[in-house]
Structure formats: structure tokens, C-alpha cells
């Protein structure tokens, strides 16, 4: 209806503006596709490889000619079953425990950092940052000796404790930032409404912090789940060896066959929980629950 009243010049201007808008959105699409291909191509390649038979591995094609689930059978019910399933169990257990401990400790710590004014607050934050910057590889050798002499070598706690050193700093930093966003007044209002400090924390702060805690937990879980250096150095048997380390111990059916197919299948299986987690908690991660708490 507005086009009727437009002069030709104005109509031309509008067309140009629309074209420019379309051009920028095309630009965004191109960038998005490039990034998606860049990130997902290796995953797709591994997925394709995991369905190849040993004979097809080096045929130079991307897709398998005769897709077969033999690799999955091998690691789930076949020869590598014992190696893979116990490693999977170790990975799940160790990562979840390390995540839980990290999140509980970090929640309390971050809450104190965000709310209280105590001497040494800066030091806590700086030290935790320094710990996360410390190269893992330089810690492995002394830990190896220490763990052997105190009996933590090749046990779950022997991995959980070093994982905490990786997950705690990041958890403290993310959670502290998150707590700082929650308005002080909410807690004060709860106290005036008759809550003890603990009740205020439990009934007001924790539900509001839930998205932040989820985000932190997922990040912490990934860190523990993806670790390789500690996993391979501080374990020696199936008692505690996690999946990333176990992959290195896969062998082919005979010494002339490479285990690439089985490793790919195992890699796909360990990627699934990560993808599932992100999809399940995407909403929680993104949702800004605090909107509307204050004027906005």
C-alpha cells in the first residue's frame, strides 16, 4: 500500500536497501556454512570411516561401499569389548564424579567470592587462574611417582583429583561471574521476608543460578571427558583407564590390520553423550532466567 505513494526515486532507494539487506544475509549464510563444514567435516569423516570394513579403509573414498556395523560389533560385543566397555564405564564414572565435586565446591566458592568481602579474595581467583594455566604435562611425571607411592595410581580417585585441578578453576570463574549477575536485592528481600541466609540461598539463589550451574557442569564434564594426558599416564589397566586413553590400545584383528575402523566407532560412541548433553540443556544454557527480576 505504501508503494503507491512513493516517487520512483524513493522506490529505487527502497529496492536498493532491500538488496543490501539480502546481500548481508547471504554473506552470513556463506560464513555459517563454511564454519559448519570446517567443524563437522572431521566428524563426518570419522562417522563414515566407522562403517567401513577393514578392506575399504584405504580405498580413498569418503563413503563406505558396503556400510557395515562390524566395527561397532567389534567394540561392543567382539574382541575389543572388554577394553572398550570398561573404559567407557571408567570415563563416565570418573567424569561425572569429578564434575559433581567441582560444581559443588565451585558453587560455594563462587558464591562467597561474589557476595562476601574477605581478605584474600583476589588471591583465590588469581591462584585458580594460575592453576588452570599450568601445563598439564609438567605435572604428570611427579604425579605419576606420587600416586604410585601412595597407592592412587590406576584408581578412580587417582584421576578424579587431577581432573579437579582442571575443572575447578573454570567452574569458579564462570560461576562467580554468574552469581554477580544475580541482584543482591533478591537475597535481601528473601531475608526480610523471613528467610535465614541458608534458606535464601537455597530457595532464591540456587534456582536462579541453575542455568549457570548447568553450563558450568557441562563445561567441566567435557574437560574431564576429553582428557588424554592424565588418562594415559596415570592408569595402566582397565581398572581406571578412560576411553581416550583406551583408544590407543585398540589393535586390529591381526597385526596386519589397522584398528582405524574400531577407533572411529569408539570415537563416535564417546561423542554421543556430549552431543546429547548440549541438546538436552541447550535451553538452560541459553535462557536468561534473571530477566524481569529487576526493572527491564
Amino acid at each position: 500500500m505504501s508503494t503507491e505513494t512513493l516517487t520512483p526515486e524513493e522506490a529505487e532507494g527502497q529496492r536498493r536497501a532491500r538488496r543490501a539487506k539480502r546481500n548481508t544475509s547471504i554473506g552470513w549464510w556463506v560464513i555459517t556454512i563454511v564454519v559448519a563444514v570446517w567443524c563437522l567435516f572431521p566428524v563426518a569423516s570419522i562417522l563414515a570411516t566407522s562403517f567401513k570394513t577393514p578392506g575399504e579403509l584405504s580405498n580413498g573414498k569418503f563413503l563406505p561401499d558396503n556400510p557395515s556395523t562390524s566395527n561397532y560389533e567389534e567394540i561392543l560385543v567382539g574382541d575389543s569389548q572388554e577394553l572398550f566397555l570398561s573404559a567407557l564405564w571408567n570415563s563416565i564414572g570418573i567424569s561425572i564424579i569429578a564434575t559433581l565435586i567441582a560444581v559443588v565446591l565451585a558453587t560455594l566458592c563462587a558464591y562467597a567470592i561474589a557476595r562476601l568481602d574477605f581478605p584474600g579474595k583476589k588471591i583465590v581467583l588469581t591462584v585458580s587462574l594460575m592453576v588452570s594455566m599450568f601445563p598439564v604435562i609438567s605435572l604428570v611425571t611427579p604425579l605419576f611417582n606420587l600416586w604410585r607411592s601412595i597407592g592412587l595410581y590406576d584408581t578412580w580417585p587417582g584421576l578424579i583429583i587431577p581432573y579437579l585441578s582442571l575443572t575447578l578453576p573454570i567452574a569458579i570463574w564462570t560461576l562467580a561471574a554468574f552469581f554477580q549477575q544475580i541482584p543482591w536485592e533478591l537475597e535481601q528481600a528473601a531475608q526480610v521476608d523471613g528467610a535465614t541466609p541458608l534458606q535464601a540461598f537455597r530457595k532464591v539463589i540456587v534456582p536462579l543460578a541453575a542455568p549457570g550451574v548447568f553450563t558450568t557442569a557441562i563445561i567441566a564434564f567435557f574437560i574431564a571427558w576429553n582428557d588424554f594426558v592424565y588418562g594415559i599416564s596415570l592408569t595402566s589397566t582397565e581398572a581406571a583407564r578412560p576411553v581416550p586413553a583406551a583408544l590407543a590400545f585398540f589393535t586390529g584383528a591381526s597385526q596386519f590390520e589397522s584398528p582405524t575402523g574400531a577407533i572411529s566407532a569408539a570415537a563416535i560412541i564417546v561423542t554421543i553423550p556430549v552431543v546429547l548433553l548440549v541438546m538436552l540443556f541447550q535451553k538452560q544454557i541459553v535462557a536468561g532466567l534473571t530477566s524481569g527480576a529487576v526493572k527491564g
Binding site: 536485592e185 533478591l186 528481600a189 532464591v204 524481569g292 527480576a293
Partner: peptide, 17 residues
Amino acid sequence: PKDRNLAMVFQNYALYP
């Protein structure tokens, strides 16, 4: 605060979101 039995209305309302 919880033992004083006073009610307060905050400037930014402080509603529980």
C-alpha cells in the same frame, strides 16, 4: 532481618523471577 517482622518494598521490586 527475619526476626524483625518488617516488610520492605525495594526500589527495583526484587521479585523472585
